[in-house]
Design a protein around this nucleic acid. Sequence first.
DNA 1: CAATATATAATTGTATGCAATCAAGGCATC
DNA 2: GATGCCTTGATTGCATACAATTATATATTG
Lengths: 229, 229
Amino acid sequence: MSETKHGNRTQTAADRLRQMIVAGDLAPGQRISERAIREHLEGLSRTPLREAFKILAGEGLVTISPNRGATVTALSMADVEDTMELLVGLEGLAAEPACKNILLQEIVEIEELHQRMVAAYRAEELMEYFELNQAIHQRIVDAAGNRALSRIYAAECARIRRYRFAGNRHHERWDRAVAEHEQILGFLKDRNGSLLREMLRAHYRNGWQVTRELIGWEFAGTDQEPDRK
Amino acid sequence: MSETKHGNRTQTAADRLRQMIVAGDLAPGQRISERAIREHLEGLSRTPLREAFKILAGEGLVTISPNRGATVTALSMADVEDTMELLVGLEGLAAEPACKNILLQEIVEIEELHQRMVAAYRAEELMEYFELNQAIHQRIVDAAGNRALSRIYAAECARIRRYRFAGNRHHERWDRAVAEHEQILGFLKDRNGSLLREMLRAHYRNGWQVTRELIGWEFAGTDQEPDRK
DNA sequence: CAATATATAATTGTATGCAATCAAGGCATC
DNA sequence: GATGCCTTGATTGCATACAATTATATATTG
Protein backbone atom coordinates (compact mmCIF):
# COMPACT_ATOMS: atom_id res chain seq x y z
CA MET A 1 0.00 0.00 0.00
CA SER A 2 2.04 2.91 -1.17
CA GLU A 3 1.17 5.85 1.02
CA THR A 4 2.50 7.94 -1.85
CA LYS A 5 -0.80 9.33 -3.01
CA HIS A 6 -0.93 12.67 -4.65
CA GLY A 7 -2.61 15.65 -3.16
CA ASN A 8 -2.17 16.05 0.56
CA ARG A 9 1.45 16.09 1.59
CA THR A 10 1.39 19.81 2.25
CA GLN A 11 -1.76 19.56 4.31
CA THR A 12 -0.46 16.59 6.24
CA ALA A 13 2.79 18.35 6.99
CA ALA A 14 0.91 21.44 8.14
CA ASP A 15 -1.33 19.36 10.37
CA ARG A 16 1.54 17.54 11.99
CA LEU A 17 3.53 20.69 12.52
CA ARG A 18 0.52 22.45 13.94
CA GLN A 19 0.00 19.58 16.33
CA MET A 20 3.62 19.76 17.41
CA ILE A 21 3.49 23.49 17.98
CA VAL A 22 0.11 23.65 19.64
CA ALA A 23 0.89 20.70 21.88
CA GLY A 24 4.16 22.31 22.85
CA ASP A 25 6.66 19.83 21.42
CA LEU A 26 8.43 22.76 19.83
CA ALA A 27 9.36 25.63 22.08
CA PRO A 28 8.34 29.20 21.23
CA GLY A 29 11.10 31.08 19.52
CA GLN A 30 12.75 27.86 18.46
CA ARG A 31 14.02 27.78 14.96
CA ILE A 32 12.47 25.18 12.66
CA SER A 33 14.95 24.43 9.95
CA GLU A 34 13.59 22.55 6.98
CA ARG A 35 16.33 20.03 7.54
CA ALA A 36 15.45 19.24 11.13
CA ILE A 37 11.77 18.77 10.41
CA ARG A 38 12.39 16.57 7.43
CA GLU A 39 14.27 14.20 9.68
CA HIS A 40 11.16 13.78 11.82
CA LEU A 41 8.62 13.69 9.01
CA GLU A 42 10.50 11.32 6.80
CA GLY A 43 10.00 11.10 3.09
CA LEU A 44 8.87 14.68 2.86
CA SER A 45 10.45 17.00 0.37
CA ARG A 46 11.10 20.67 0.77
CA THR A 47 8.33 22.10 -1.37
CA PRO A 48 5.30 20.86 0.59
CA LEU A 49 7.11 21.60 3.82
CA ARG A 50 7.72 25.17 2.80
CA GLU A 51 4.10 25.52 1.76
CA ALA A 52 3.09 24.16 5.15
CA PHE A 53 5.21 26.86 6.79
CA LYS A 54 3.28 29.50 4.91
CA ILE A 55 -0.02 28.05 6.05
CA LEU A 56 1.09 28.01 9.66
CA ALA A 57 2.50 31.51 9.35
CA GLY A 58 -0.97 32.62 8.29
CA GLU A 59 -2.37 31.05 11.44
CA GLY A 60 0.19 32.93 13.48
CA LEU A 61 1.84 29.78 14.73
CA VAL A 62 5.17 30.27 13.01
CA THR A 63 7.04 33.37 12.02
CA ILE A 64 9.01 33.47 8.80
CA SER A 65 11.98 35.81 8.46
CA PRO A 66 13.24 36.33 4.93
CA ASN A 67 16.30 34.22 4.19
CA ARG A 68 16.37 33.08 7.79
CA GLY A 69 13.67 30.53 7.87
CA ALA A 70 10.84 29.77 10.23
CA THR A 71 10.60 29.92 13.98
CA VAL A 72 7.81 28.94 16.33
CA THR A 73 6.07 32.24 17.00
CA ALA A 74 7.02 33.51 20.43
CA LEU A 75 4.34 35.62 21.99
CA SER A 76 5.03 38.23 24.59
CA MET A 77 2.99 38.35 27.75
CA ALA A 78 1.24 41.37 26.27
CA ASP A 79 0.33 39.42 23.14
CA VAL A 80 -1.17 36.60 25.16
CA GLU A 81 -3.08 39.02 27.33
CA ASP A 82 -4.43 40.82 24.31
CA THR A 83 -5.55 37.55 22.85
CA MET A 84 -7.17 36.43 26.09
CA GLU A 85 -9.03 39.71 26.24
CA LEU A 86 -10.18 39.14 22.69
CA LEU A 87 -11.35 35.62 23.49
CA VAL A 88 -13.34 36.91 26.44
CA GLY A 89 -14.94 39.43 24.13
CA LEU A 90 -15.74 36.85 21.48
CA GLU A 91 -17.40 34.56 24.00
CA GLY A 92 -19.34 37.54 25.20
CA LEU A 93 -20.52 38.22 21.67
CA ALA A 94 -21.55 34.59 21.33
CA ALA A 95 -23.50 34.38 24.57
CA GLU A 96 -26.82 35.87 23.58
CA PRO A 97 -27.15 34.40 20.11
CA ALA A 98 -26.04 31.06 21.54
CA CYS A 99 -28.87 31.16 24.07
CA LYS A 100 -31.27 32.07 21.32
CA ASN A 101 -30.22 29.48 18.81
CA ILE A 102 -28.90 26.49 20.64
CA LEU A 103 -30.76 23.22 20.12
CA LEU A 104 -31.59 20.89 22.96
CA GLN A 105 -29.57 18.27 21.19
CA GLU A 106 -26.53 20.52 21.36
CA ILE A 107 -27.04 21.24 25.02
CA VAL A 108 -27.13 17.52 25.66
CA GLU A 109 -23.88 17.07 23.76
CA ILE A 110 -22.19 19.82 25.71
CA GLU A 111 -23.39 18.30 28.96
CA GLU A 112 -21.88 15.05 27.85
CA LEU A 113 -18.58 16.79 27.23
CA HIS A 114 -18.90 18.32 30.65
CA GLN A 115 -19.42 14.92 32.26
CA ARG A 116 -16.35 13.59 30.52
CA MET A 117 -14.46 16.65 31.68
CA VAL A 118 -15.48 16.02 35.28
CA ALA A 119 -14.35 12.43 34.90
CA ALA A 120 -11.00 13.57 33.57
CA TYR A 121 -10.82 15.99 36.48
CA ARG A 122 -11.38 13.16 38.97
CA ALA A 123 -8.85 10.96 37.22
CA GLU A 124 -6.49 13.91 37.18
CA GLU A 125 -5.97 13.49 33.49
CA LEU A 126 -4.51 16.86 32.76
CA MET A 127 -4.52 16.79 29.02
CA GLU A 128 -7.97 15.31 28.63
CA TYR A 129 -9.39 17.83 31.07
CA PHE A 130 -7.84 20.73 29.22
CA GLU A 131 -9.00 19.49 25.82
CA LEU A 132 -12.57 18.98 26.94
CA ASN A 133 -12.63 22.32 28.66
CA GLN A 134 -11.63 24.02 25.44
CA ALA A 135 -14.05 21.92 23.44
CA ILE A 136 -16.95 23.02 25.63
CA HIS A 137 -16.16 26.66 25.17
CA GLN A 138 -15.80 26.19 21.45
CA ARG A 139 -19.17 24.47 21.29
CA ILE A 140 -20.84 27.31 23.12
CA VAL A 141 -19.35 29.78 20.68
CA ASP A 142 -20.39 27.55 17.79
CA ALA A 143 -23.92 27.52 19.10
CA ALA A 144 -24.19 31.20 18.27
CA GLY A 145 -24.37 30.08 14.68
CA ASN A 146 -21.88 32.63 13.35
CA ARG A 147 -19.27 30.90 11.23
CA ALA A 148 -16.87 33.81 11.15
CA LEU A 149 -16.98 34.02 14.91
CA SER A 150 -16.38 30.30 15.35
CA ARG A 151 -13.47 30.33 12.97
CA ILE A 152 -11.72 33.25 14.62
CA TYR A 153 -12.32 31.87 18.07
CA ALA A 154 -10.81 28.51 17.16
CA ALA A 155 -7.80 30.07 15.48
CA GLU A 156 -7.01 32.39 18.36
CA CYS A 157 -7.41 29.59 20.87
CA ALA A 158 -4.89 27.54 18.96
CA ARG A 159 -2.47 30.42 18.81
CA ILE A 160 -2.22 30.78 22.56
CA ARG A 161 -3.06 27.24 23.53
CA ARG A 162 0.36 26.32 24.81
CA TYR A 163 0.57 29.36 27.03
CA ARG A 164 -2.76 28.66 28.65
CA PHE A 165 -1.92 25.03 29.04
CA ALA A 166 1.30 25.87 30.81
CA GLY A 167 -0.71 27.31 33.68
CA ASN A 168 -3.07 24.38 33.89
CA ARG A 169 -0.85 22.16 35.92
CA HIS A 170 -2.12 23.25 39.27
CA HIS A 171 -5.23 21.47 40.39
CA GLU A 172 -6.45 23.99 42.91
CA ARG A 173 -8.32 25.89 40.24
CA TRP A 174 -10.00 22.85 38.76
CA ASP A 175 -12.84 22.34 41.21
CA ARG A 176 -13.83 25.94 40.99
CA ALA A 177 -13.66 25.78 37.21
CA VAL A 178 -15.91 22.74 37.21
CA ALA A 179 -18.42 24.56 39.38
CA GLU A 180 -18.32 27.55 37.08
CA HIS A 181 -18.90 25.35 34.08
CA GLU A 182 -21.99 23.97 35.73
CA GLN A 183 -23.33 27.46 36.20
CA ILE A 184 -22.53 28.26 32.61
CA LEU A 185 -24.45 25.24 31.43
CA GLY A 186 -27.31 26.27 33.68
CA PHE A 187 -27.59 29.71 32.12
CA LEU A 188 -27.34 28.18 28.70
CA LYS A 189 -30.25 25.88 29.46
CA ASP A 190 -32.24 28.76 30.91
CA ARG A 191 -31.35 30.70 27.79
CA ASN A 192 -30.30 33.62 29.90
CA GLY A 193 -27.92 35.38 27.57
CA SER A 194 -26.83 38.29 29.70
CA LEU A 195 -26.08 36.18 32.75
CA LEU A 196 -24.28 33.66 30.55
CA ARG A 197 -22.14 36.45 29.18
CA GLU A 198 -21.23 37.72 32.62
CA MET A 199 -20.50 34.23 33.82
CA LEU A 200 -18.25 33.46 30.88
CA ARG A 201 -16.49 36.70 31.53
CA ALA A 202 -15.88 35.92 35.16
CA HIS A 203 -14.90 32.35 34.38
CA TYR A 204 -12.31 33.42 31.90
CA ARG A 205 -10.88 36.10 34.13
CA ASN A 206 -10.65 33.75 37.09
CA GLY A 207 -8.86 31.13 35.06
CA TRP A 208 -6.52 33.53 33.39
CA GLN A 209 -5.51 35.19 36.63
CA VAL A 210 -4.24 31.86 37.93
CA THR A 211 -2.58 30.99 34.67
CA ARG A 212 -0.90 34.34 34.33
CA GLU A 213 0.91 34.04 37.61
CA LEU A 214 2.02 30.53 36.84
CA ILE A 215 3.47 31.37 33.48
CA GLY A 216 4.69 34.79 34.44
CA TRP A 217 8.23 33.82 35.21
CA GLU A 218 8.32 31.38 32.34
CA PHE A 219 8.33 34.30 30.00
CA ALA A 220 11.56 35.73 31.32
CA GLY A 221 13.60 33.13 29.48
CA THR A 222 11.49 32.17 26.51
CA ASP A 223 10.27 35.39 25.15
CA GLN A 224 12.62 38.28 25.47
CA GLU A 225 15.44 36.29 23.93
CA PRO A 226 13.79 34.83 20.84
CA ASP A 227 16.15 31.93 20.43
CA ARG A 228 19.59 30.69 21.10
CA LYS A 229 21.58 27.91 19.61
CA MET B 1 19.83 46.60 -12.23
CA SER B 2 18.58 43.08 -12.04
CA GLU B 3 15.33 43.04 -10.11
CA THR B 4 16.22 39.43 -9.41
CA LYS B 5 16.94 39.82 -5.74
CA HIS B 6 16.45 36.89 -3.52
CA GLY B 7 13.92 36.87 -0.75
CA ASN B 8 10.55 38.35 -1.55
CA ARG B 9 9.00 36.94 -4.67
CA THR B 10 6.42 34.99 -2.70
CA GLN B 11 5.47 37.99 -0.63
CA THR B 12 5.26 40.23 -3.64
CA ALA B 13 3.06 37.77 -5.46
CA ALA B 14 0.81 37.44 -2.43
CA ASP B 15 0.54 41.20 -2.13
CA ARG B 16 -0.35 41.70 -5.76
CA LEU B 17 -2.87 38.89 -5.75
CA ARG B 18 -4.43 40.19 -2.57
CA GLN B 19 -4.71 43.59 -4.12
CA MET B 20 -6.39 42.11 -7.17
CA ILE B 21 -8.86 40.13 -5.11
CA VAL B 22 -9.67 42.77 -2.54
CA ALA B 23 -10.05 45.46 -5.19
CA GLY B 24 -12.34 43.18 -7.14
CA ASP B 25 -10.31 42.63 -10.30
CA LEU B 26 -10.93 38.91 -9.88
CA ALA B 27 -14.51 37.79 -9.44
CA PRO B 28 -15.54 35.63 -6.51
CA GLY B 29 -15.68 31.98 -7.44
CA GLN B 30 -13.38 32.56 -10.37
CA ARG B 31 -10.71 29.99 -10.84
CA ILE B 32 -7.15 31.25 -10.62
CA SER B 33 -5.00 28.89 -12.61
CA GLU B 34 -1.30 29.20 -12.04
CA ARG B 35 -0.89 29.60 -15.73
CA ALA B 36 -3.23 32.55 -16.08
CA ILE B 37 -1.71 34.47 -13.19
CA ARG B 38 1.80 33.90 -14.41
CA GLU B 39 0.87 35.60 -17.63
CA HIS B 40 -0.05 38.75 -15.70
CA LEU B 41 2.78 38.64 -13.20
CA GLU B 42 5.50 37.89 -15.66
CA GLY B 43 8.74 36.27 -14.74
CA LEU B 44 7.22 34.49 -11.78
CA SER B 45 7.70 30.80 -11.39
CA ARG B 46 5.28 28.32 -9.92
CA THR B 47 6.84 27.80 -6.50
CA PRO B 48 6.46 31.32 -5.09
CA LEU B 49 3.06 31.62 -6.70
CA ARG B 50 1.83 28.47 -5.04
CA GLU B 51 3.21 29.64 -1.73
CA ALA B 52 1.36 32.91 -2.22
CA PHE B 53 -1.84 30.93 -2.74
CA LYS B 54 -1.33 29.25 0.60
CA ILE B 55 -0.87 32.59 2.31
CA LEU B 56 -4.02 33.99 0.78
CA ALA B 57 -5.91 30.82 1.60
CA GLY B 58 -4.99 31.42 5.21
CA GLU B 59 -6.45 34.88 4.96
CA GLY B 60 -9.62 33.41 3.55
CA LEU B 61 -9.26 35.22 0.26
CA VAL B 62 -8.75 32.17 -1.91
CA THR B 63 -9.98 28.63 -1.56
CA ILE B 64 -7.79 25.73 -2.55
CA SER B 65 -9.35 22.45 -3.62
CA PRO B 66 -6.96 19.50 -3.76
CA ASN B 67 -5.86 18.74 -7.31
CA ARG B 68 -8.22 21.39 -8.58
CA GLY B 69 -6.37 24.54 -7.83
CA ALA B 70 -7.31 27.85 -6.34
CA THR B 71 -10.42 29.97 -6.72
CA VAL B 72 -11.27 33.39 -5.37
CA THR B 73 -13.27 32.60 -2.26
CA ALA B 74 -16.95 33.14 -2.94
CA LEU B 75 -18.85 34.07 0.15
CA SER B 76 -22.52 33.41 0.55
CA MET B 77 -24.80 36.14 1.75
CA ALA B 78 -24.86 34.33 5.09
CA ASP B 79 -21.07 34.37 5.30
CA VAL B 80 -20.94 38.09 4.67
CA GLU B 81 -23.69 38.74 7.19
CA ASP B 82 -21.90 36.64 9.79
CA THR B 83 -18.73 38.57 9.17
CA MET B 84 -20.50 41.91 9.35
CA GLU B 85 -22.04 40.89 12.63
CA LEU B 86 -18.59 39.92 13.87
CA LEU B 87 -17.16 43.27 12.80
CA VAL B 88 -19.90 45.09 14.66
CA GLY B 89 -19.05 43.05 17.71
CA LEU B 90 -15.35 43.72 17.41
CA GLU B 91 -15.89 47.46 17.12
CA GLY B 92 -18.12 47.21 20.14
CA LEU B 93 -15.35 45.50 22.06
CA ALA B 94 -12.93 48.21 21.01
CA ALA B 95 -15.14 51.14 21.97
CA GLU B 96 -14.50 51.42 25.67
CA PRO B 97 -10.79 50.66 25.71
CA ALA B 98 -10.40 53.02 22.77
CA CYS B 99 -12.00 55.85 24.73
CA LYS B 100 -9.79 55.05 27.67
CA ASN B 101 -6.51 54.80 25.82
CA ILE B 102 -6.67 57.04 22.80
CA LEU B 103 -4.18 59.86 22.68
CA LEU B 104 -5.12 63.36 21.62
CA GLN B 105 -2.64 63.03 18.84
CA GLU B 106 -4.53 60.02 17.51
CA ILE B 107 -7.84 61.82 17.71
CA VAL B 108 -6.35 64.62 15.68
CA GLU B 109 -5.14 62.15 13.07
CA ILE B 110 -8.54 60.51 12.85
CA GLU B 111 -10.18 63.90 12.48
CA GLU B 112 -7.81 64.61 9.65
CA LEU B 113 -8.83 61.38 7.96
CA HIS B 114 -12.42 62.40 8.49
CA GLN B 115 -11.82 65.76 6.83
CA ARG B 116 -10.24 64.04 3.88
CA MET B 117 -13.18 61.66 3.76
CA VAL B 118 -15.63 64.56 3.68
CA ALA B 119 -13.61 66.11 0.88
CA ALA B 120 -13.74 62.85 -1.06
CA TYR B 121 -17.47 62.76 -0.39
CA ARG B 122 -17.91 66.24 -1.84
CA ALA B 123 -15.75 65.39 -4.83
CA GLU B 124 -17.72 62.16 -5.19
CA GLU B 125 -14.54 60.19 -5.23
CA LEU B 126 -15.99 56.84 -4.52
CA MET B 127 -12.86 54.83 -3.92
CA GLU B 128 -11.13 57.43 -1.81
CA TYR B 129 -14.22 57.86 0.32
CA PHE B 130 -14.55 54.15 0.91
CA GLU B 131 -10.87 53.73 1.76
CA LEU B 132 -10.86 56.59 4.23
CA ASN B 133 -14.05 55.37 5.80
CA GLN B 134 -12.49 51.99 6.41
CA ALA B 135 -9.26 53.57 7.64
CA ILE B 136 -11.13 55.59 10.24
CA HIS B 137 -12.85 52.55 11.63
CA GLN B 138 -9.58 50.66 11.70
CA ARG B 139 -7.92 53.50 13.57
CA ILE B 140 -10.64 53.52 16.18
CA VAL B 141 -10.22 49.81 16.70
CA ASP B 142 -6.46 50.23 16.83
CA ALA B 143 -6.88 52.86 19.50
CA ALA B 144 -8.11 50.16 21.86
CA GLY B 145 -4.51 49.04 21.98
CA ASN B 146 -5.22 45.34 21.53
CA ARG B 147 -3.04 43.92 18.82
CA ALA B 148 -4.99 40.69 18.42
CA LEU B 149 -8.18 42.67 18.00
CA SER B 150 -6.65 44.99 15.41
CA ARG B 151 -5.25 42.11 13.43
CA ILE B 152 -8.50 40.20 13.30
CA TYR B 153 -10.49 43.28 12.46
CA ALA B 154 -8.23 44.15 9.55
CA ALA B 155 -8.23 40.61 8.19
CA GLU B 156 -11.99 40.25 8.32
CA CYS B 157 -12.49 43.64 6.71
CA ALA B 158 -10.29 42.58 3.83
CA ARG B 159 -12.16 39.33 3.44
CA ILE B 160 -15.49 41.01 2.80
CA ARG B 161 -14.22 44.27 1.40
CA ARG B 162 -15.41 43.73 -2.13
CA TYR B 163 -18.92 42.86 -1.00
CA ARG B 164 -19.25 45.97 1.08
CA PHE B 165 -17.78 48.09 -1.63
CA ALA B 166 -20.29 46.79 -4.13
CA GLY B 167 -23.04 48.50 -2.16
CA ASN B 168 -21.22 51.77 -1.83
CA ARG B 169 -22.11 53.14 -5.19
CA HIS B 170 -25.25 54.93 -4.13
CA HIS B 171 -24.66 58.33 -2.70
CA GLU B 172 -27.85 58.69 -0.74
CA ARG B 173 -26.31 57.02 2.26
CA TRP B 174 -23.17 59.10 2.24
CA ASP B 175 -24.38 62.28 3.92
CA ARG B 176 -25.95 60.34 6.72
CA ALA B 177 -22.77 58.33 7.10
CA VAL B 178 -20.73 61.50 7.33
CA ALA B 179 -23.03 62.83 10.03
CA GLU B 180 -22.74 59.59 11.94
CA HIS B 181 -18.98 59.71 11.72
CA GLU B 182 -19.05 63.16 13.25
CA GLN B 183 -21.06 61.86 16.17
CA ILE B 184 -18.67 58.96 16.53
CA LEU B 185 -15.73 61.32 16.68
CA GLY B 186 -17.59 63.38 19.22
CA PHE B 187 -18.10 60.45 21.57
CA LEU B 188 -14.51 59.46 21.12
CA LYS B 189 -13.38 62.93 22.13
CA ASP B 190 -15.74 62.89 25.09
CA ARG B 191 -14.37 59.48 25.94
CA ASN B 192 -17.87 58.15 26.29
CA GLY B 193 -17.32 54.46 25.65
CA SER B 194 -20.85 53.15 25.96
CA LEU B 195 -22.36 55.78 23.70
CA LEU B 196 -19.55 55.27 21.23
CA ARG B 197 -20.30 51.57 21.19
CA GLU B 198 -23.98 52.14 20.56
CA MET B 199 -23.24 54.68 17.87
CA LEU B 200 -20.82 52.38 16.09
CA ARG B 201 -23.41 49.67 16.28
CA ALA B 202 -26.09 51.83 14.75
CA HIS B 203 -23.71 53.20 12.14
CA TYR B 204 -22.74 49.77 11.00
CA ARG B 205 -26.27 48.47 10.89
CA ASN B 206 -27.48 51.49 8.93
CA GLY B 207 -24.73 51.13 6.41
CA TRP B 208 -25.07 47.42 6.04
CA GLN B 209 -28.80 47.56 5.55
CA VAL B 210 -28.32 49.75 2.51
CA THR B 211 -25.48 47.67 1.20
CA ARG B 212 -27.31 44.40 1.67
CA GLU B 213 -30.18 45.42 -0.53
CA LEU B 214 -27.88 46.70 -3.22
CA ILE B 215 -25.84 43.55 -3.41
CA GLY B 216 -28.72 41.19 -2.75
CA TRP B 217 -29.40 40.31 -6.33
CA GLU B 218 -25.75 40.29 -7.21
CA PHE B 219 -25.42 37.13 -5.22
CA ALA B 220 -27.90 35.20 -7.30
CA GLY B 221 -25.42 34.73 -10.10
CA THR B 222 -22.06 34.76 -8.40
CA ASP B 223 -22.52 32.70 -5.36
CA GLN B 224 -24.80 29.73 -5.65
CA GLU B 225 -23.00 28.49 -8.72
CA PRO B 226 -19.35 28.75 -7.69
CA ASP B 227 -17.99 28.91 -11.20
CA ARG B 228 -18.55 27.88 -14.71
CA LYS B 229 -16.34 27.84 -17.69
C1' DC C 1 -28.83 10.02 -31.13
C1' DA C 2 -27.53 9.21 -26.33
C1' DA C 3 -24.47 7.34 -23.18
C1' DT C 4 -20.41 5.38 -21.70
C1' DA C 5 -15.63 4.19 -22.02
C1' DT C 6 -11.13 5.44 -23.28
C1' DA C 7 -7.32 8.12 -24.79
C1' DT C 8 -5.21 12.48 -24.58
C1' DA C 9 -4.37 17.02 -23.07
C1' DA C 10 -4.14 20.25 -19.41
C1' DT C 11 -3.37 21.20 -14.61
C1' DT C 12 -1.88 20.45 -10.14
C1' DG C 13 1.34 18.16 -6.56
C1' DT C 14 6.03 16.90 -5.49
C1' DA C 15 11.02 16.39 -5.88
C1' DT C 16 15.31 18.22 -6.85
C1' DG C 17 19.00 21.27 -8.66
C1' DC C 18 20.91 25.81 -8.79
C1' DA C 19 21.44 30.61 -7.09
C1' DA C 20 21.43 33.90 -3.44
C1' DT C 21 21.87 34.91 1.22
C1' DC C 22 23.34 34.26 5.87
C1' DA C 23 26.41 32.47 9.72
C1' DA C 24 30.83 31.06 11.50
C1' DG C 25 35.56 30.64 11.73
C1' DG C 26 40.19 31.69 10.28
C1' DC C 27 43.45 35.00 8.84
C1' DA C 28 45.64 39.27 8.52
C1' DT C 29 46.35 43.77 10.27
C1' DC C 30 46.67 47.19 13.71
C1' DG D 1 45.21 40.64 22.06
C1' DA D 2 41.37 42.74 19.66
C1' DT D 3 39.06 44.02 15.48
C1' DG D 4 37.77 43.78 10.81
C1' DC D 5 37.77 41.24 6.38
C1' DC D 6 37.41 37.25 3.69
C1' DT D 7 36.56 32.49 2.80
C1' DT D 8 33.74 28.52 3.41
C1' DG D 9 29.79 25.87 4.88
C1' DA D 10 25.07 25.70 5.64
C1' DT D 11 20.39 27.29 4.76
C1' DT D 12 16.91 29.46 2.38
C1' DG D 13 14.56 31.18 -2.12
C1' DC D 14 13.50 30.13 -6.72
C1' DA D 15 13.12 27.57 -11.09
C1' DT D 16 12.17 23.54 -13.38
C1' DA D 17 11.53 18.60 -14.32
C1' DC D 18 8.69 14.74 -13.29
C1' DA D 19 4.55 12.25 -11.35
C1' DA D 20 -0.23 11.99 -10.40
C1' DT D 21 -4.71 13.63 -11.04
C1' DT D 22 -8.48 15.81 -13.40
C1' DA D 23 -10.83 17.56 -17.47
C1' DT D 24 -11.82 17.19 -22.32
C1' DA D 25 -12.60 15.23 -26.59
C1' DT D 26 -13.28 11.30 -29.39
C1' DA D 27 -14.86 6.95 -30.53
C1' DT D 28 -17.66 3.08 -29.89
C1' DT D 29 -21.86 0.74 -28.83
C1' DG D 30 -26.65 0.24 -27.58
